[in-house]
Design a protein around this nucleic acid. Structure first.
Lengths: 235, 235
DNA sequence: ACCTGAACACCGTTCAAGT
DNA sequence: ACCTGAACACCGTTCAAGT
């Protein structure tokens, strides 16, 4: 019954077992699929497990907690950032804006990741590579070390907050028409406020409700931040 | 048996019923107590109900949903903002910074509210009064209408994101020593990264981990935003 | 009109037991 | 070593039934 000793080759096995073993990567894959397709709230340990044909308890052999899973998701998304060319002192301001635009693009392409990212120190490899690139641009702009470091904190925080805000709004499955109607109602609401107490809100009602859903508001913020940082460059 | 017509005073009732009736205000009071004492995650419809000696279903007669409750909490906190004097073109930049500092102070005094506020259009009366004040300061700085309006979007979003980030960190019940240790470990981690791939992260390790827990990082952001806006003032 | 108990359809995490 | 079923201690919301 014992195996013959001169049989060095392991007996033929099915090349792939019917059920692939659980791995960290397969878990993150499944979570990424869920978060992109159905948003942050649709990602639960139970749903991920179901997607993988197992129970929630099985995941904990590979992932310590949901919070660790969030970190892994953030790093997966960070890997999608196209970081462009070398930092160039001659056009660092435009490079900085492009970096922020690219970061927002990736977060939009991965809805729910912003929610997972907010309030987390990014320590994953891909996130750190992005940060390194950002620091390069800021130093190309001649910012002092401390200013560059704090700017590298401010910038991702702001972009993440914008992306998160958008996903909260998109979560309600509104059509563009619904959004347009809501913006119209908001404008009418501002215009109808008592002008003695809310003079500027009434007067600026149309400016306050402009640029929603477009990128104008974001572009404005890019200009503010870039100009503010430029004022801090060493000469 | 019928009441005599010359009895104009209603029959003596117990001055207060043993159980006060549920009201929107009492619900928000209880939620505010919970959120300030135990953080956002401790606020559930069930816990609020328990606090009020009833069941969760009873709340829905006065509050449509948890999201509506969040809006009410945000407005409660907004009422605590001290809005200071009149907008003054001579010192609008300092007033703007004070506004942001005051907003952060209130959010810190009401942990969890930042989490409730993020991604919500503030339409409550108190929140709108704050916004009106902010617009006044921005217009005192001679910003064009559209710039003032978008700045009034950018500023609360940033301050809320900072406050939210802090509450996420504070949620883990870390002592100041724990935080100090974590910051030290992070710095060591940055310093130990491969210098070929992460030259700036390694070189700036101490700047990157400076100012945590203090207000220096926030003050830096105030300067950037204020300087950036000043560059957009009409002359 | 307001309140309630009970239920529905979910969560993240733990743990003893299996292979 | 890895996986599993079952349980623990929770969620937000709905609804028929009571007062």
């Amino acid at each position: 019954m014992s195996q013959s000793p001169w049989q060095p080759i392991s007996p033929p096995k099915p090349p792939r077992p019917a059920k692939e073993p659980l791995t960290r990567d397969r878990i993150v894959d499944a979570a990424m699929r869920l978060i992109v397709e159905h948003g942050y709230d649709a990602v639960s340990m139970r749903k991920i497990a179901q997607e993988l044909g197992t129970g929630p308890a099985s995941l904990y052999a590979h992932v310590a907690s949901k919070s660790e899973l969030n970190q892994l998701l953030v790093d997966r998304a960070a890997a999608q950032m196209k970081l462009g060319g070398r930092p160039d002192p001659g056009r660092w301001q435009e490079q900085l804006k492009d970096y922020m635009r690219e970061m927002l693009r990736v977060m939009r392409a991965n809805p729910g990741v912003a929610r997972a990212a907010i309030g987390q120190v990014p320590l994953g490899e891909q996130a750190l590579l992005g940060n390194e690139k950002l620091l390069g641009i800021l130093k190309a702009g001649n910012l002092p070390d401390q200013a560059a470091a704090w700017a590298a904190d401010l910038i991702p925080l702001y972009v993440t907050a914008v992306a998160f805000e958008e996903t909260v709004q998109n979560a309600s499955a509104w059509t563009p028409e619904d959004v347009a109607r809501f913006v119209g109602e908001m404008r009418a609401y501002f215009e109808g406020l008592p002008a003695e107490r809310f003079p500027l809100t009434v007067a600026l009602a149309s400016a306050l409700t402009a640029g929603t859903g477009h990128d104008e508001r974001f572009e404005f913020a890019l200009s503010v931040i870039t100009a503010g940082l430029a004022a801090m460059a060493e000469d």
